[in-house]
Every structure is written in C-alpha cells, then in structure tokens.
C-alpha cells in the first residue's frame, strides 16, 4: 500500500505552517511500499497532528491523504476498522493502553481483534526479547512508562500490517532496550514487507531509513 500526501495542511496550524518550508506540509509526497521513513520534527511542528491525521483520528485538515489511490476521508466506519486491523499498525506517543487490563491482555486484545497473525505464544517470545516478561500479568496502568512503551510496541507488532507508524516510540527507553526494540521492529517489518514511518525529535540511526524528512 502506498501512502500519498497531497498539499496537507492542518487547519488550526495553517497560518503558521504556510510561513515556513516543510518536506511534508503543503506539498505532495508519496511513500512507496516497504519504505522506512524517518520524520524529524522538533516540538511544535505538528508531529502528533500528522500521525493523528494519518491514522484518521482527526480530519480538520486541507488537502488529502491517499492509501493507494483512495482518499482516506471517504472511508466508511467498517473500512476504517479493517484498515486498522490489517494495514495500519500504530504506537502512539501517549501509548493508549487499557490501564485496567494486564499487559498480556492488552496485547492479546489486538492479536484477536482480527484473525490472528501470530499464535499467542508469540507474545511471550516478543516480551522475552524486549525484557518485559515479568510484567505481562501486571495491570498496564501499574507498569512504568518504559515498560508500557515496550508493551505498546509488542501490541503493534502482533497484528498484520503493511505500514507501522510510530510516534516517538523510544522516548523512555535506554540505548540497550532501544537496540532490542529496533531489531524486533526491523525484523517484523521486513517479514511483512511493510513500511515504517517513525517520528522523532532528533536524528537517529536505529534503522536504515530509505528517506529522512523534516516536518
């Protein structure tokens, strides 16, 4: 699935963005399948806004986003659900786990929301790789932010997808954990032939990016 931005401009930030140049806002740009995209964005440049527009959480923007050749504004509720189950996976900046479910239940929910891509043993294997096995049975709300971040990453990797979108996914991880997570993410994306779109404040070398853009 290719993703195309056509003259995208969030309405609330329109005036500000028109006054400065950007690789993304107010221009047309296409992302090929399986591309690894890094979007570098200092605070206040609309990073989370972009992610939310792309994930269809808000539609107060001008211009258009196309998945293949379909404008996403025209998606129906059930089509959107199918896309989120099959095509787009996401790690939110604010993670959005269910605090009352255990870490395992949070991941399991996403695994069985559609026909499972992986058997449930994969949860343990990924958790072991990221060093969070010991908190799997703990309520997510009681986990540290770094632990929650890793749970959210596993949750995003347990489902089928052709694009993985991540908004500052490593903000609370130390370098060793970042390396492990990046390894796992890289492997899972390659396995699916999926693209990766990651936003962060700084330049990084966690992945071999096919494209690095400034917001």
């Amino acid at each position: 699935m290719t993703i195309t931005f056509q003259n995208l401009l969030p309405i609330p930030l329109k005036d500000r963005f028109l006054q400065r140049s950007s690789d993304i806002w107010n221009t047309t740009i296409q992302f090929e399948e399986s591309a690894f995209i890094k979007i570098k964005a200092p605070s206040g440049t609309g990073k989370t806004t972009l992610i939310h527009i792309l994930y269809l959480l808000r539609n107060d923007y001008e211009g258009a986003i196309l998945f293949d050749s379909n404008p996403i504004k025209e998606l129906k509720d059930f089509e959107l659900a199918t896309i989120r189950q099959q095509k787009l996976s996401i790690v939110f900046q604010d993670l959005r786990l269910f605090p009352d479910l255990t870490a395992r239940e949070n991941i399991e929910l996403k695994r069985i929301l559609q026909d499972p891509y992986y058997p449930k043993e994969m949860i343990d294997s990924m958790a072991a790789e990221l060093g969070v096995t010991h908190i799997l049975e703990q309520r997510a709300g009681l986990c540290s932010y770094g632990e929650q971040q890793r749970i959210a990453i596993i949750r995003a990797l347990i489902q089928p997808f052709s694009w993985l979108i991540m908004d500052e996914p490593f903000s609370h991880l130390d370098n060793e954990n970042i390396d492990r997570a990046a390894n796992l993410i890289d492997r899972e994306c390659k396995k699916r032939g999926a693209g990766l779109m990651i936003t962060d404040l700084e330049h990084d070398t966690h992945f071999y990016y096919t494209r690095e853009l400034n917001l």
């Binding site: 994930y55 959480l57 509720d77 059930f78 659900a81 199918t82 896309i83 959005r96 996403k110 929301l113």
Partner: peptide
C-alpha cells in the same frame, strides 16, 4: 473511553 479506544485500535462498530 474504553469503547473509544477500542475503535481507535481497530474494533469495528459491528464487533
């Protein structure tokens, strides 16, 4: 909130 988040995560209204 839970229903909202479920839908965000991709639960279909039908489900």
């Amino acid at each position: 909130e839970e229903i909202g988040l479920l839908i965000i995560l991709g639960a279909s209204p039908y489900q």
